[in-house]
């Protein structure tokens, strides 16, 4: 059977219009596609993320069961749910043939900062589920404060002169956990997005990690109709790369024909306002090292 990712995009929706996300939020797109691929027989663990708003802020909800525990431990939610499903199937409470997909979705702060131990624990145990980090590169739901995935020089309310440190490379850290699947996603590349989620869904038990690049009009200071353009430029400049790591094997899934200069991406965003030529060269060097370095 030829599996066309476009098919998934025309499937039934479990994520509805009328959500309370900001105009131009890429999270709505991402969650909608995730839900289309995972379908009705899935259960969500939502951690702290802007995506709490459409999923867990009363009266909004998904059309599937979902649980919000706390900011950090949505990976542990995967562990508890998948263990419960195994024992309840052994005891015949849940039919053995029924496929229930457990997934978590959480923000970059809850994933890369406060929940890092929980994430690493669930990955090391290879607990069964899909984990989506919605990486909008700052604590956006609390009003734009830096996280460890905020890129260097970016303005936030807690880095008013620009962040000093570089962005933490979380997908590489997750790949080092020797889990079956790690992938990066972008809302500018829906077919790549959907194909990867389908692949992880169908690859059998284990921990699968996704990081969704999430250009945030509110926090990054760009007009809300430019979300997809910013997302695409991130990939075309190499600021964000699309790849997957399947059982340790690294594959680039989209390679720009010719990488654009990083300034093309940076200049669209108010959070990088005031960068000097030297700062931009530093960012360009970071991208070049990252793209040409080991493992790329």
């Amino acid at each position: 059977m030829i599996n066309n990712p476009r098919d998934a995009l025309f499937k039934e929706d479990y994520f509805h219009p009328g959500h309370p996300l900001c105009p131009g939020c890429p999270g709505g797109m991402a969650l909608r596609w995730i839900m289309k691929v995972l379908g009705r027989d899935s259960i969500a663990n939502v951690g702290a993320t802007c995506l709490c708003l459409p999923t867990h802020v009363y009266p909004h909800s998904l059309e599937i069961p979902s649980l919000y525990i706390a900011m950090a431990p949505s990976p542990a939610g995967i562990s508890g749910m998948s263990a419960a499903i195994r024992i309840l199937k052994r005891k015949g409470v849940i039919p053995a043939e029924k496929r229930i997909t457990v997934f978590a979705i959480s923000g970059d702060g809850s994933t890369a900062d406060i929940g890092m131990a929980a994430l690493s624990g669930a990955a090391e145990r290879n607990d069964d589920g899909l984990y989506f980090c919605f990486d909008n590169e700052a604590y956006m739901n609390t009003g734009i404060q830096r996280s460890s995935t905020t890129p260097q020089f970016s303005w936030t309310f807690s880095t008013t002169k620009g962040k000093v440190q570089r962005k933490k490379d979380l997908p590489k850290i997750m790949a080092a956990h020797d889990i079956p699947y790690v992938a990066t996603l972008s809302v500018a590349y829906p077919e790549d997005f959907v194909r990867k989620v389908e692949k992880a869904r169908d690859m059998g038990p284990g921990f699968k990690y996704f990081q969704i690049h999430g250009p945030c009009p509110t926090g990054w200071r760009f007009p809300e109709h430019k979300t997809v353009e910013v997302a695409r430029l991130a990939v075309e400049t190499g600021f964000w790369s699309l790849y997957e790591v399947v059982h340790g094997s690294f594959n680039i899934t989209y390679r720009p024909r010719k990488r654009l200069p990083v300034v093309d991406y940076v200049k669209l965003q108010g959070r990088f306002q005031g960068l000097t030529a030297q700062d931009i060269r530093t960012l360009q060097n970071w991208v070049d090292e990252k793209e040409e370095g080991p493992g790329s």
Partner: peptide, 11 residues
């Protein structure tokens, strides 16, 4: 957290 999630599944 895992206990909450497992118990919420009915185990």
């Amino acid at each position: 957290a895992a206990a909450v999630a497992a118990e919420a599944m009915g185990a």
